[in-house]
Amino acid sequence: MMNQYASATVVSAACNYIMERPDKFTHTYRTYVKLREHGKLELRFWHSNAIDSTWDTGLVARGGALGGQWRIEAAYVADGGTAPDGSVEPNSQVRVTFDGGSGARSVAPGEKFWSDPVKLDLPEGHLLAFTWTISTDAGGKTVPYNTEQMLVTAYDAPGVRADASDAEGFSLSENLLVMPALIASAKPVRQRLVFLGDSITQGVRTRRDGYEYWAARIADGLGSDYAAWNLGSGWARAYDAAAEGAWLSKVKLGQVPGTGTQIVLALGVNDIDIGARTSEQLLADLNTIITVLRQNDPSAEIILFTVPPFNFSEEREQIWRYVNEQIRSASLPGVDRVFDMAALLSQPAPLEHRLCREFMSSADDPHPNGAAGKVVADAFLAWYLGER
């Protein structure tokens, strides 16, 4: 399937949380995303009913856990216009079907599935609106989703509102991105890139609808004939991927054997921080990820990023320094190229472990801001295009 389709947006829909409610529910979710191409499109939507990465300490959501039983009552794509105001352009909605024409679909725990192809004419500069109504027959843990800061505008409404073109009943969503895992477009591409990382790859703390994070800026700089699938996930850590669960299976899906798919690995901050991993454990997890992806597709090219500065101190600072020394020395087998993101964002020595103040998203938050995203993307594009 991925031979014919490629990711059409840089918005990450990786799942790091799960709905847990006492009673059954029926609810509608509408999300606006900027696609990387416009005009007459053929789209398909792929979903994985599982949690990709661990949230916080894993009390509610742990990487690799399966989603519950739920049902898609209806799903639509539409021209979302130029402003995400909760409505869609009149008469632009096209129903998304499954399994050869069904407008509804029951979803089993851990299930992975594609929609049928859907055609839409999206004018230049307009957003895609994806709307679906989801229901459950019981309470408990059901639908996996992404709970980090919203990087795109989304709305939700109680009841069945998937086919509504107006905004009546919809409220602005916060920390609630309920989307298929992949929006894919039928098109030939020059190169496929998959970005596997944490909230810094996802773009957390940059402006909503701004597409300022480094993965988005890199995709813009390369152009739409390069396919870019962003699998950044807030709180994610390397051991989530090394466990070979749902998250790494998405990377494998993005690999088209024999085409030299490029995989950008940018992990380590949360392993050092809340994951409390030793340097040996983190390096072993990175080695596992690289080995598995190489086995899945020997033609793949692995680009490994250094771990960005995150204002670590004491033992965590020493782990950060040692891991980056190992990455820079190209000592990890199976890595084709190393990109030194940390050097671009760090303060001058001896404070390399601290993020430059102008790149801080706030006075006490070392998530890189949009300015940092530009610095990283500009340097990556110069390095990447210069090497090709």
Rank of each mutant, 00 (worst) to 15 (best):
S361E: 06
N230C: 10
Q295R: 14
D209Q: 09
I302D: 11
L222I: 07
L267C: 04
D273W: 11
P298K: 01
Y29A: 08
E42I: 12
A243I: 02
P188V: 01
T142L: 05
R217Y: 02
L120K: 06
N49H: 08
G67V: 03
M1R: 11
Q69L: 15
V152Y: 03
F380K: 00
L304H: 04
C15I: 03
D336G: 13
E212P: 04
Q347N: 05
M2H: 11
R217H: 05
V88C: 07
D365Y: 02
T278Q: 07
A343N: 10
N3Q: 10
G125S: 05
F98Y: 14
P84K: 00
E358W: 12
A300L: 06
V152F: 03
T288G: 00
I218F: 09
A241R: 01
E315D: 15
A108Q: 15
G221P: 09
P109Y: 01
Y226E: 08
A371G: 11
A300Y: 08
R44C: 12
A78P: 13
E301N: 08
R207L: 12
S299N: 10
P298T: 00
G260M: 07
H38Q: 14
S224H: 13
N146W: 06
Y155N: 07
H27C: 04
S135V: 08
P117V: 08
T82D: 11
T131M: 06
L355F: 06
G275W: 11
H27F: 07
I18D: 04
W229V: 08
A330V: 09
S313G: 08
T153L: 02
E387Y: 14
M1N: 06
K250H: 10
L267P: 01
P298H: 00
D121G: 00
F359V: 03
N324P: 07
N3T: 14
L231D: 09
W55E: 15
D271C: 02
Y239M: 15
S329I: 11
V338K: 04
E387K: 15
M1H: 11
S87P: 02
S299L: 00
A266R: 00
Y145A: 00
G268D: 09
W132H: 04
L385E: 15
I319A: 01
A236G: 15
G203M: 06
E124A: 10
S135G: 05
T153R: 12
N296C: 01
N16C: 03
Y29N: 09
D85H: 10
H353Q: 15
H27Q: 15
N3F: 11
G159R: 06
V178D: 07
E89C: 12
G63I: 12
L355Y: 05
